[in-house]
């Protein structure tokens, strides 16, 4: 009971701050829209799938993935901010299990990222995609599962990083590769061997793939279509989330005392 309460309050703190900072939310939503407009529309002149589906439609699940990636990581990385500005001490000296703190953080990252993905899905009709309530619901579920994986992963990293300076390194060497090696812009089956392996271990790959299943209406065998069956996507995500949460708890616990 007291653990649930701790999870809830850690979650609530982050979520409240997210709702309060409208400008940050707008910024977070502007990025994917710009990507869709500039990159999607621009590349659709060059990239032709041969089946008449415009490239910006293919790109949409990828852009959702990007939004989730940034939102979930930003939320988890706030642990570094908390450490830097002292608030983490307030949490660490409280009689609360470390895993409850990790779960609260992971859930807030998940919720924040999922809300952003849901807001973006308002674009579905404007991209000429079919609007199916069940499809959007399924995509939201896949988004939440992906967000949970990425939030937990973010907590692992945040437990290791000591300073805000390392944040840029993180963006360049973790976020960017995760995005590009995820099937967001091109199918992972086309990647050369070493990169392909990385892509196959990347939870974003399966999240984006699942969202493609739910949102796109592709002719069978489409060159830019899904790489995996939906069931496998969800299974991988669920397994990854559990593993990452366990690892995040371990990392956080270890970083708490030195």
């Amino acid at each position: 009971m007291r653990h649930l309460r701790a999870i809830h309050v850690v979650f609530l703190r982050d979520f409240k701050k997210f709702l309060r900072e409208r400008s940050r939310l707008l910024g977070a939503l502007a990025r994917p829209v710009v990507w869709l407009l500039l990159l999607g529309v621009g590349l659709s002149q060059i990239v032709q799938s041969g089946d008449g589906v415009p490239y910006e439609q293919y790109l949409f699940p990828g852009v959702l993935g990007m939004t989730i990636l940034f939102a979930a990581f930003m939320s988890s990385i706030s642990i570094i901010w908390d450490r830097e500005f002292g608030f983490l001490k307030e949490i660490l000296v409280a009689p609360v299990a470390r895993w409850a703190i990790v779960f609260g953080k992971a859930l807030s990252g998940t919720a924040i990222a999922t809300v952003q993905a849901l807001l973006l899905m308002l674009l579905v009709p404007f991209l000429g995609l079919p609007f199916r309530p069940l499809g959007v619901l399924g995509a939201a579920g896949a988004a939440a599962l992906t967000a949970l994986c990425l939030s937990a992963l973010g907590i692992c990293l945040a437990s290791r990083l000591r300073t805000l300076e390392s944040f840029n390194v993180l963006v360049n060497f973790v976020l960017m590769p995760m995005f590009f090696l995820s099937g967001a812009m091109y199918p992972v089956s086309r990647l050369p061997e070493p990169l392909g392996i990385v892509a196959h271990l990347n939870p974003m790959t399966y999240g984006i793939d699942a969202m493609k299943h739910c949102l796109l209406d592709l002719p069978p065998g489409s060159a830019l279509g899904q790489d995996f069956p939906l069931g496998w996507d969800l299974l991988f995500l669920a397994g990854f989330a559990l593993g990452a949460l366990a690892f995040a708890t371990w990392s956080f616990e270890r970083s708490g005392r030195d």
Partner: peptide, 16 residues
């Protein structure tokens, strides 16, 4: 980024 009251509520919940 929280109010004074929210800071205290957070603390009260952590200490159950």
């Amino acid at each position: 980024d929280l109010t004074a009251w929210e800071n205290l509520v957070f603390h009260a919940a952590l200490y159950n």
